[in-house]
Design a protein around this nucleic acid. Structure first.
Lengths: 342, 342
DNA sequence: TTGTAGGCGTTATCAC
DNA sequence: GTGATAACGCCTACAA
């Protein structure tokens, strides 16, 4: 059994309140006594029982991160940022893989989150009324990361997807591409796909490049789905010179398909991704992509959450994280006529 | 404020003991009463306060997973397996990124794990006396995943690294390779590098292929380090026909170097990895590698841990997870003379 | 500056 | 089958 506050008190010949004060308000204890107590604490290896303190003041020093799947490096990176702030605040992070599944979410909420948790970072799907209701019932600060709930004004941390997507598309256009196919995430996943589609479309239109539904194809945001989507896109647009995919995983899947078709990237077809996963620099050629500073998103979300935890009735301000085009090797500049094909 | 057991009791006109029983031993409560209570519980949305229960019976329903870095997909995969078992047991998983750093480990132990946690899965470095001492002080079940502590007989879940490495090397030899370079993990990281080196060496010797320190090069087990290690290896062994790297990340880094040197994989040089990260199938050509079923390692470690939690004085048996050679596109069979080079 | 005592919400033991 | 009660360990008025 671990030593309790009583053990310390007895050993140090003081009352338990003194011991408690040494922990929570050291200055209010006489120097000599404080040192005596500290000494005993050290000796016995005493640490306050967190259940007991939790019971009193209802804080667990634990926050929850709800993400679709930790195996997805996007979320691993984000979690890493969250964990970093948490560590600095001496908080723990509990991880929940929701698999974007309402039932699984409920299970977590029911059996875990209700258990007592000081805050929640949610980075799964976009927020529907269902989620909103559950959040409210939890009665703890909630911050969204890389998703959105403006309809219920939940604070969120994310990239400006419209603008980022606009920039990516413009980059392609500026490199002389006109026949630009777009591999979008699934249409049922509103955030961020509506925004990224909008940015793409807007850039095309602003630059007088024709666009239509013929230029786009929808798929889950995974490697395999990207591979398969590319085959559909290629069938629709045999003359495309560039592909812009709404995620790196899809972009790399698309590259695999292209490769198998004997199409070289970027000689025959240019490819642009979104996310800047570590992966994207590992492949050859490196993937040109839009960097989201994902770690920063996690960190920011963590910081926002702690603001909420430390000051419960403060309104949290959503924050936008900057994005950036990372130029590597998958986009060819068609304006340089050096080595032209098609 | 959340409703307490008293609120339910009052509302249902029973004593709190009855309410408690409805939760913990429903059969001991009369049917009629039970239903009345259940109804009120539902109405009020009552859930037992975990601090209070924790205070009584010293269980938090939380376990900890200590890994070097969640951004490393190897550990993300493992964590995912752990989380899955935990969920099924209605436990939560707290994640700790140790960065293989003793100080950081201590910080976690001091401020977090001591908080009360029912078990620990450790997957960071190999176990030194330092770690062992800290584990003992925690006084909770500990299971090692993908690392080893036989010196102190801590239960572990891992692949047979010697055999796996032996198999990988043999595969290369059977494909007609003799000049096989080995990129090892750092020598200060004993597990799993001693074992993988041993397997490599043994296979070479058993097949009468010459080996020496000239064939090996050491590096951190990352992409960048693999890239750099390959340059060293290539300098030492300009005639190598195959490279075997002790991790996929290193193998892919090595491939990048080779690619930049104008050496084609597998035409000029064959490459073999270890781990079978998802990454390894995404690149072109796909990486031939030794699959560890990492998810399974995590799951297994979780199950072992729960055995220990549910039965505190049971001796836990270490388990070995099967490995498998995954043949993709990076190893050329030199015995087929079809398209020979060098 | 230090000590005493009550209460946080639950569960298990005991008595009825 | 049901209810009262002690105990888990801590914190903080409040009293001294």
């Amino acid at each position: 059994m671990n030593p309790t506050i009583h053990d310390v008190a007895k050993q140090a010949n003081v009352s338990i309140s003194t011991v408690s004060r040494v922990f929570n308000n050291p200055d209010s204890v006489g120097k000599e006594m404080r040192e005596r107590v500290l000494q005993v604490i050290e000796e016995l290896g005493y640490a306050p029982n967190p259940f007991a303190s939790g019971l009193r003041d209802n804080r667990s020093m634990v926050i929850v991160a709800m993400i679709p799947d930790i195996r997805n490096s996007y979320y691993a990176e984000m979690l890493s940022g969250i964990e970093e702030v948490a560590l600095s605040k001496r908080y723990n992070v509990i991880i929940c893989n929701t698999i974007q599944n309402e039932e699984r979410f409920l299970e977590y909420v029911k059996y875990f989150v209700k258990k007592k948790v000081d805050g929640l970072i949610f980075a799964s799907t976009e927020i529907t009324e269902f989620y909103k209701k559950n959040f409210d019932a939890l009665n703890i600060p909630v911050v969204l990361a890389s998703t959105e709930g403006r309809a219920w004004d939940l604070p969120s941390v994310r990239v400006d997807d419209v603008q980022a997507s606009y920039d990516a598309t413009t980059f392609l256009i500026n490199n002389g591409h006109q026949e630009i196919g777009f591999i979008s995430g699934p249409s049922h996943l509103l955030v961020p796909n509506v925004q990224r589609y909008e940015g793409y479309r807007k850039a095309m239109q602003d630059h007088q490049v024709p666009v239509s539904e013929q230029h786009v194809v929808y798929a889950e945001m995974t490697f395999d789905a990207g591979y398969e989507a590319m085959s559909r896109l290629y069938a629709k647009m045999p003359h495309l010179t560039a592909v812009y995919a709404a995620s790196d995983a899809m972009a790399i899947g698309a590259m695999k398909f292209l490769h198998e078709q004997g199409l070289e990237v970027p000689r025959h077809v240019s490819v642009m991704g979104f996310d800047n996963l570590e992966l994207s620099r590992m492949i050859s050629p490196g993937l040109t992509t839009v960097a989201q500073n994902i770690y920063e998103i996690g960190k920011s979300a963590g910081e926002l959450l702690f603001q909420g935890i430390e000051n419960r009735d403060q309104d949290l301000q959503s924050v936008t994280i900057a994005h950036e085009i990372i130029v590597r090797g998958t986009v060819r500049n068609r304006r340089l006529k050096s080595d032209s094909e098609r």
